[in-house]
Design a protein around this nucleic acid. Structure first.
Lengths: 159, 159
DNA sequence: AAAGATTGAATAGTCAATCTTA
DNA sequence: TAAGATTGACTATTCAATCTTT
């Protein structure tokens, strides 16, 4: 009846926890490395890239601050100050929302698009080198589909 | 010759980038939620749990600060101050290293083990609910194995 | 000088309070 | 009053500087 789980009851003795653990460790290692390398190579912090990417993909290249915050991955709760910084660098500009005087729009500028296009291949290259290159097509699909399920379930529960 | 990549050259038009993207989004969403829920339920910050878990698993329940920093996932560069805080709460204690006067050992106390054992089932439950429950056995294995490959490759390149 | 650890100073991230418009 | 955004104040994270021991 004695089982090996007795020896180390808190560790990776079950598949779900082991998967979660490697998920955390991989994120910590890769995000830091890629962030540093992209900033070294382009001068653009990854958080700026994140904002410019979302604005560029949006209708008319602009979004309300709230929507921008919802789409961005890296600096969620800092968007207002982040946009300040990127605006100082001339890569976005704030515009009033014609439909709602309370809202503010952040719009990507020509310089912003230029910088985004310059940085993009470098970022994509790092993702390829550090992440995708080590996985097979089947593994990539399994990870993408699996995590999409997890994320969908999460968005279903949390508002 | 025209291809659809022309339309949206920066977005998720390739599997590697799409997988990376959902990887980032899942991490951002889940870590925040689980962190909050575990702290609410146990009073123990996840960063403390992280430290206690590694110390508990280590030989004699203690590690040199450097080794602890290397094993911890959440607050890598903060270990010294983190151990200060956990020490104030009586869950770890610093000990001199008999073999090297420069080094310091962090050792888990009885209270630390008690708190860890109390928090563990709650943390594991959240991992199950928010993460593992939404994946099949096959998906969990694919994610675990895939990310382990990625991490191994990373540790092979970066020292 | 170099390794191990801690600390100071700067940036990033979070939560609640505030200010403006609907 | 409530929604949208910004700001203040607090905590977390990081990097370089420092202090001690080898």
């Amino acid at each position: 009846m004695a089982k090996k789980t007795q020896r180390q009851p808190l560790a990776d003795d079950n598949l779900g926890v082991a998967t979660w653990s490697v998920f955390l460790r991989t994120h910590a290692a890769l995000v830091r490395t890629i962030e540093r390398e992209v900033e070294e190579a382009t001068g653009l912090p990854l958080s700026w890239y994140d904002v410019l990417l979302e604005l560029n993909a949006a209708e008319k290249g602009r979004l309300r601050m709230q929507e921008l915050a919802a789409r961005v991955v890296l600096s969620r709760t800092r968007v207002s100050r982040l946009v300040d910084d990127i605006e100082s660098a001339g890569m976005v500009e704030r515009q009033p929302d014609p439909d709602d005087g309370r809202a503010a729009l952040a719009a990507i500028t020509d310089l912003g698009r230029k910088e985004l296009l310059r940085a993009a291949p470098l970022y994509l290259g790092r993702i390829q080198d550090h992440f995708a290159a080590h996985l097979t097509y089947q593994q990539l699909r399994a990870i993408r589909d699996g995590l999409e399920q997890v994320l969908a379930a999460h968005e279903h529960t949390e508002p």
